[in-house]
């Protein structure tokens, strides 16, 4: 137990949680068949908003993180109005362009401190551990305050991931989710059956941007330092890879993809210069052999059936 609680493992766990949220944001737009490549832009809006609010205005952290998400969603609304009506590829390129524009703006603005980035962002771990020590929790656990803070951050993030997952799961199994699925299957047929395609696409796009903003804010408070290089095109590729590798048609896909692809590079530190080469080849091979990712719809159904069966077999 002591070994598991070391800072390194906890840090990796924090990144797994953030990456799961990012992978889910890609999944959310894919639910309606939209390919949005601007999530690094929304992420940087969230990160910078939350960091600046917390640093300059002393806004409490939960509120600043929420603001990060809201600002990202507001920007998505402005970007979405002209672009959401566009066919798939136009949207992909327009959002990709949006991400680049945001990065260049962040590089040139004073409030974002340009290429140097913002450092000394209030840490989520230490604010959580302060809060816990006020309640006398830390002494009860018998941990030093740094580990306790990190542990609490892990727990908080895990709860958040579960909440987001549950929220989207519920949404997908509601009337809204069925509309999403109809649009994904055939936009034209969906609009003929009275589904307001633009409305639902916009909804998915806004949710995706909101959670990307939240993930960005969490990233800022987890690493205490952000710069425009954190939100480049490569970040989008990472997110896409998590979702596509895990499985882009089922919710468990992004979860699996983000977890595996965060742990594997960590354990292969020695091969880090080959990481991107392997990633590139993996994307090509995946698309060639298994374009729906590791977990396809059928695979999930199969596993679910097996899981249901096995307790019976035990009896």
């Amino acid at each position: 137990m002591e070994e598991l609680l070391n800072g390194y493992f906890l840090q990796v766990f924090v990144f797994i949680c953030i990456n799961i949220i990012l992978a889910l944001t890609i999944y959310m737009t894919l639910c309606t068949g939209l390919v949005s490549l601007g999530n690094a832009g929304f992420m940087s809006f969230g990160a910078y908003t939350s960091a600046i609010l917390a640093m300059k205005l002393d806004v409490p952290m939960p509120l600043s993180i929420l603001c990060g998400g809201i600002v990202a969603a507001a920007v998505a609304l402005i970007i979405g109005i002209p672009t959401i009506r566009l066919r798939g590829l136009y949207l992909a390129i327009a959002t990709l362009g949006f991400g680049e524009v945001v990065r260049v703006i962040a590089l040139n603005m004073k409030i974002t401190n340009g290429a140097l980035g913002l450092s000394g962002i209030p840490s989520m771990a230490s604010s959580l551990s302060d809060y816990a020590s006020d309640l006398g929790l830390i002494d009860a656990l018998g941990l030093d305050s740094q580990t306790a803070g990190q542990l609490l951050m892990c727990i908080a993030l895990l709860i958040l991931v579960v909440l987001i997952f549950f929220f989207w799961y519920k949404l997908e199994h509601s009337r809204v989710g069925r509309a999403f699925a109809a649009i994904k299957a055939d936009e034209y047929a969906a609009s003929l059956s009275g589904i307001n395609v633009v409305y639902y696409k916009m909804m998915a796009f806004l949710f995706s941007a909101f959670f990307a903003g939240v993930a960005g804010a969490l990233y800022a408070h987890a690493t205490y330092f952000i710069s425009p290089t954190d939100f480049t095109w490569h970040k989008v590729v990472d997110m896409l890879l998590y979702t596509v590798f895990g499985g882009s048609n089922v919710m468990w896909g992004p979860l699996l993809g983000a977890t595996v692809l965060t742990i594997v590079p960590e354990s292969l530190r020695a091969m880090s210069e080959y990481r991107d080469i392997i990633y590139g080849l993996m994307l090509v091979a995946l698309m060639g052999f298994r374009p729906d990712g590791i977990l396809s719809y059928d695979a999930v159904k199969y596993i679910a059936r097996r899981l249901k069966k096995s307790p019976k077999g035990g009896n």
């Binding site: 590829l89 990481r275 090509v284 995946l286």
Partner: peptide
Amino acid sequence: FALRPLRRRKVTHLAPLISTIGVSIFLESV
């Protein structure tokens, strides 16, 4: 390697996009 295998089966427009992104990452890192 990246386009022909995708044409053999019915895939969404996401697949060739990602496959070619893979090639670009590969070329850049090599």
